[in-house]
Amino acid sequence: MKIVVCIKQVPDTADIKWTENNTIQREGVESIINPFDMYAIETALKLKDVYENTTVTTLTMGPNQAENIIRKSISMGVDSGFVLSDKKFAGSDTLATAKTISTGIQFKIPDFDLVICGQFATDGDTAQTGSGVATNLDVPVITYVKEVKEIKDGYVTVLREVEDGKEVLKAKLPAVLCMLKCDYEPRRAYINGYRNAQKAEVKFYSHEDISISPEETGFKGSPTYVSKAFRPEEKQSGELIKTDDLECISNKILEVLNG
């Protein structure tokens, strides 16, 4: 079985710093694998543990440094990975990103059985790219997947978490799955994994390599654009009290509760 995992390098949003111009400071901010993609990797590796002859390939689209997250994934047990990197990809919105990634998959692993993505990325949080990739590849997609139950006879069965409960769904392979945070934690790198990660050859592919027209990627291929970015208004702080007098505290709270 051939599994492709799409991963993204994101700034650690717990550690946002601002420039003087109210833009997010990217330099010096640590980049991590998008946390939801870590569950996508773990889910793929769990399948590799169970199903013989399974290979897991990670791919990312980003600047050259994104190579680091591919190596990180290899240190966890992923077999190989590659980076879609080209100045022409810059400025891609979700439509252009999905187009670029799906073209990359068709170029490199056209006979995939499963593509696994994280449901959200913590920076953009659009949750649209996985579905876009599936649509371009013309394969079924299941979003909000909590657990992969089984792969059998050319079908994958999953547990999906929605607002009012859990659904059990079955999709014909090849398919795309978008993973939520799972009930299991992503594994850590292991010693041989580090060695593999160092040794691995991580290839870079440009728009010419994967044969995508510059009209379909980057700024040119993106129907949406940001017209304005700003910091959310901070709420006017209310009253702050500091006292050991529990009665006084309770009365204050009751005042608010009683409107």
Partner: peptide, 19 residues
């Protein structure tokens, strides 16, 4: 003009669409 939070709510972006 659609406005949404990004970067975990740290930044608001107003987005337009040309299609």
């Amino acid at each position: 003009a659609a406005t949404r939070p990004t970067f975990g709510g740290n930044l608001m972006a107003t987005i337009l669409c040309k299609q």
